[in-house]
């Protein structure tokens, strides 16, 4: 039963994360979900989502390191941030760019996402460690 409620909490967090992701895509006007969509020459929405989510997971991983609540980490990290950020959209968009002959854009997209995402985690971790210590 405890396991079931943990999964339910992750599910609710995931729903809120996924809806937020869809909202950001809509703001960027990149919510058409079609391959070969010419308006999506660079997937700014997914890039913004993934880098923001990476920054937030860096903060939360440090802030909640000693958190004993059985729901905060599953809800915020596994559920919300896990559902907000995505790898499948990144993979689909990169493949779509390659398929349209925009291989340079596809490579830049992958490199910028990974580079900025890892940098964002590090900034989040370091900034939060500094705040938590003082």
């Amino acid at each position: 039963m405890r396991e079931a409620s943990r999964l339910a909490v992750i599910g609710v967090g995931g729903v809120l994360g996924a809806l937020s992701r869809a909202g950001v895509s809509q703001i960027f006007g990149q919510d058409r979900l079609e391959l070969g969509d010419q308006s999506a020459n660079f997937p700014w929405a997914t890039l913004a989502i993934n880098v923001t989510g990476a920054f937030l997971i860096g903060i939360l991983a440090v802030a909640l390191i000693t958190d004993n609540s059985s729901y905060r980490k599953p809800f915020l990290i596994t559920g919300f941030l896990g559902g907000f950020t995505t790898f499948s959209a990144l993979a689909l968009e990169a493949v779509d760019l390659f398929d349209r002959g925009l291989w340079f854009t596809a490579l830049v997209y992958l490199i910028v996402t990974v580079g900025a995402g890892l940098l964002a985690v590090n900034i989040g971790v370091r900034a939060t460690r500094r705040v938590v210590r003082t």
Binding site: V15, L33, N50, T78
Partner: peptide, 24 residues
């Protein structure tokens, strides 16, 4: 159905933030 499977299911099943944290 496409929205459910691509944006909902696959989108929430996969994660970039979790990967970036695990990599760090």
């Amino acid at each position: 159905l496409r929205i459910l499977l691509v944006i909902g299911l696959a989108g929430a099943f996969t994660t970039f933030s979790g990967w970036a944290l695990a990599f760090t």
